[in-house]
Simulated assay, not measured.
Amino acid sequence: VDLFHDNPDMLELEPIWYLKGQHVLLEALFILGHYSKHEEVKQNLQDFLNDPPTRSNENLETLGFMYLYTSKINSHFIAGTFTEGTEMVPELNRKLDKYSQQVDSHRILVFYYKIACLYFGAGDNEKTIEYLNKIINYHDQKLREDLHCFARILNLIAHYEMGNQILVEYQIRSVYRFLSKMNDLNLVQQEILKFLQDLGKSNGSTLKEK
């Protein structure tokens, strides 16, 4: 990114690479939790999209939308301003509709998961479940299998928070079955699977993989 800033003529020649560089930088700052720097870079991205050095095109607009709104959501995650973050969901949905032909399915699912997390952080479990169901009910469950996995786990937690005891028991079995069929579980997923097994035993039932 700094190379582009040091050589502004390159911004006009390679705006897509600049966008991608900004996106990677924003993701790194999000993971590190550097809020102030993240906001600074996000504003730079916003300024670039508001006044691009070259004629805008469909690819530039689509990538700009995805990267900007991803960073906007991540800002609320870092700051813990979940309720405030949910206020932009209607606008984000309109953008998703606008770019539905350009944005691939897995990126849309990621947005749904991030939206669900915003609502969960804001304490709105019904909305959380609404957006998680968009992932869980997606026809191709092999697409972003990891996302389907964590969507089911968060869905289980949201139902628990709502006191839906009967649904919780069903969700425990559903999550267990899904996890048991996954290949190459990471350590977190392995621990969750073990926890669900132990939970089933403590309730006097045996969870089955099929």
Score class of each variant (00 low, 15 high):
Leu96Tyr: 10
Tyr160Thr: 11
Gly121Tyr: 06
Asn57Trp: 07
Tyr131Gln: 04
Tyr113Leu: 09
Glu191Arg: 15
Cys149Thr: 03
Ile192Phe: 11
Ile157Met: 05
Met88Trp: 02
Leu187Glu: 14
Arg94Leu: 08
Ile135His: 07
Glu191Leu: 03
Asn125Leu: 13
Leu147Cys: 03
Ser174Val: 10
Ile136Ser: 08
Thr70Ala: 07
Gly123Thr: 09
Met162His: 04
Asn183Tyr: 09
Val89Lys: 00
Gln171Asn: 11
Asn186Phe: 08
Leu118Trp: 13
Ile78Ala: 01
Ala116Thr: 08
Gln141Pro: 10
Ser71Gln: 07
Leu143Phe: 01
Leu143Gln: 10
Arg55Phe: 09
Leu132Lys: 09
Lys95Gln: 14
Ser100Asn: 14
Ile135Pro: 02
Ile153Tyr: 07
Ser100His: 14
Asn74Gln: 12
Gln141Met: 07
Glu126Phe: 04
Phe82Asn: 00
Ile115Pro: 15
Ile166Trp: 03
Val188Cys: 12
Leu96Met: 12
Lys134Val: 03
Phe120Val: 05
Val103Trp: 10
Glu84Asp: 05
Ser174Gln: 15
Gly80Thr: 01
Ile136Thr: 04
Ser75His: 01
Ser71Tyr: 09
Tyr131Asn: 04
Gly85Phe: 00
Gln171Pro: 09
Tyr160Cys: 06
Asn137Phe: 06
Pro90Gly: 01
Ile108Arg: 06
Ile172Thr: 11
Glu61Arg: 13
His76Ala: 03
Asp124Tyr: 02
Arg152Ile: 04
Lys134Ile: 02
Lys181Val: 07
Glu58Arg: 11
Asp184Glu: 13
Val89Tyr: 05
Gly80Phe: 02
Gly64Lys: 06
Phe120Gln: 13
Gln141Asn: 14
Glu161His: 00
Arg177Leu: 09
Lys142Gly: 11
Leu179Phe: 08
Ser105His: 11
Pro90Asp: 07
Tyr170Met: 13
Glu130Trp: 01
Tyr138His: 09
Asp184Leu: 14
Ile73Arg: 06
Ile153Asn: 05
Leu63Asp: 11
Phe178Ile: 08
Glu91Phe: 10
Val89Pro: 06
Ile108Gln: 03
Ser75Asn: 04
Arg144Asn: 12
Ile115Arg: 08
Ile135Leu: 03
Met162Ala: 08
Tyr69Thr: 06
Asn57Ser: 11
Ile78Asn: 02
Ile78Cys: 03
Asn57Asp: 13
Tyr131Leu: 01
Arg55Met: 07
Glu84His: 00
Glu145Met: 12
Glu161Lys: 01
Glu61Leu: 13
Glu126Tyr: 06
Arg152Tyr: 07
Ile166Leu: 13
Cys149Gly: 01
Asp140Gly: 14
Lys95Gly: 15
Val188Gly: 11
Gln141Glu: 12
Asn164Phe: 12
Ile153Gly: 01
Asn183Cys: 12
Gln101Val: 05
Asn93Ile: 02
Cys149His: 02
Val103Leu: 09
Leu154Trp: 04
Arg107Ile: 05
Tyr138Arg: 05
Ala116Val: 08
Thr83Tyr: 01
Phe178His: 10
